Amino acid sequence: MGYQELTYLLQGLGWTLVLTAMAFVGGIISGVIVALMRVSRIALVRYIAIGWIGLFQGTPLLMQLFVAYFGLPLLGFDLPGWAAVGIALTAHASAFLGEIWRGAIEAVPKGQTEAADALGLHTRSLMFDVIMPQAFKLSLPATVGFLVQLLKGTSLAAIVGFIELTRAGSIVSNQIYQPLLVFGVVGAMYFAMCWPLSLWGRRIERRMSAGLAR
């Protein structure tokens, strides 16, 4: 495998990172909304969030990519491939992150809410100044773990023809007929991205466990 093939793989790696960043940032923004809807006191709002989470957690990511990539143009949305894939990954991330943060919000001790009510804090101030900062810390290990899964999940975009790292590896392998070498390099690239994140997530979890044990 020469310089040209390695450069092509690095271009695919760049798109993998772009898709992951798009989906994670979009998932954070929409996931917060889903989590707040999930813990809302309004039953209809809760049911909408439950339906959204159930839809994207209960169906394969590959199917969601197919629907976004091939279905959105049928509805009149003429989007480039990267945008359609990004939308599918963002919706997927919002459901999982929303549920992670819902659990973290509900894990905050009830005494915090009772104390805030006693002080007469507004609901918005209670959520964003008291509960959310604590919930963020509680959810951080699970959020990092999901980021690793999301990064690896971008490889499914290769099925719809989008050229990210896995698809680039397949193209290079078909050109030079060295699949073991090519996908060994591709696997090493994924490992180099995912392993540090996994270590970081475990370190955060250990620190939190040590803090709770004190």
Rank of each mutant, 00 (worst) to 15 (best):
E164N: 11
L72Q: 02
F183C: 10
W195F: 14
T20V: 02
L89S: 04
V34S: 10
K137V: 09
F128R: 06
I176L: 07
L62Y: 12
R206K: 15
L72I: 00
L79I: 06
L79N: 04
G71S: 11
R203P: 01
S173W: 08
Y177V: 11
R202C: 01
L19Y: 05
P179C: 13
M37W: 02
L151Y: 02
V186H: 00
L55Q: 12
A142Q: 15
G211T: 05
Q57T: 14
S94F: 01
M22L: 13
L89K: 03
R167N: 10
A104H: 04
G98T: 07
V34R: 07
T113W: 05
P133I: 07
I29S: 12
T59H: 14
G14D: 10
R38D: 04
S30A: 15
L89I: 05
I171N: 00
A68C: 14
Q64M: 09
A88D: 09
G103V: 04
G76M: 07
F77V: 00
Q175V: 11
I176W: 02
I105R: 00
R102P: 04
V160P: 08
R206A: 14
A192K: 13
V186C: 02
S139G: 14
F136G: 00
T90K: 06
L180I: 14
S94D: 06
G103L: 03
E99H: 09
W82E: 12
L17W: 01
